[in-house]
Amino acid sequence: MGDSSASYIHLVHHLIEECIIFNMSKEECMEVLSKHANIKPIITSIVWKELEKENREFF
């Protein structure tokens, strides 16, 4: 599971970055990824929070 989990998280990370490019809020991003990429909002939220921790100056 390890490698596929890492690639899934990387995918979610990439999609969140795409949402940010389009100036979406966290909530908008969770909704869009749920609707169009079938990613559960909780997953998007967790990855988003980790990105915030790693990039405090950006967020």
Rank of each mutant, 00 (worst) to 15 (best):
M1F: 15
G2S: 08
G2H: 12
S4H: 14
S5P: 14
S5M: 10
S5R: 08
S7Y: 09
S7I: 10
S7T: 12
Y8E: 07
I9R: 04
I9A: 06
H10A: 14
H10V: 12
L11P: 01
L11E: 08
L11I: 07
L11R: 02
V12Y: 01
V12D: 01
H13W: 14
H13S: 05
H14P: 01
H14Q: 05
H14L: 07
I16F: 15
E17T: 09
E17G: 10
E18P: 01
C19K: 02
I20G: 02
I20V: 14
I21P: 00
I21G: 01
F22S: 09
F22C: 07
F22Y: 15
N23Y: 12
N23M: 03
N23Q: 05
M24P: 01
M24N: 09
M24W: 13
S25I: 06
S25E: 04
K26Y: 09
E27S: 12
E27T: 15
E27P: 02
E28K: 02
E28V: 04
E28M: 03
C29F: 08
V32G: 00
V32P: 08
S34N: 06
S34T: 02
S34R: 02
K35C: 01
K35G: 00
K35L: 06
K35R: 02
K35D: 04
K35V: 03
H36D: 13
H36S: 07
H36A: 04
H36V: 02
H36K: 05
A37P: 07
A37N: 12
N38V: 06
I39S: 00
I39T: 00
I39M: 03
K40S: 08
K40G: 09
P41Y: 05
P41C: 01
I42W: 13
I42F: 15
T44L: 09
T44P: 15
T44F: 14
T44D: 10
T44S: 12
S45T: 00
V47Y: 02
V47K: 00
V47E: 06
V47D: 03
V47G: 03
W48R: 02
W48V: 03
W48G: 05
W48L: 08
K49G: 03
K49Q: 11
K49M: 10
E50T: 12
L51Y: 05
L51T: 00
E52Y: 11
E54R: 15
E54K: 15
E54P: 01
E54G: 11
N55K: 06
N55M: 08
R56K: 14
F58H: 06
F58D: 09
F59W: 15
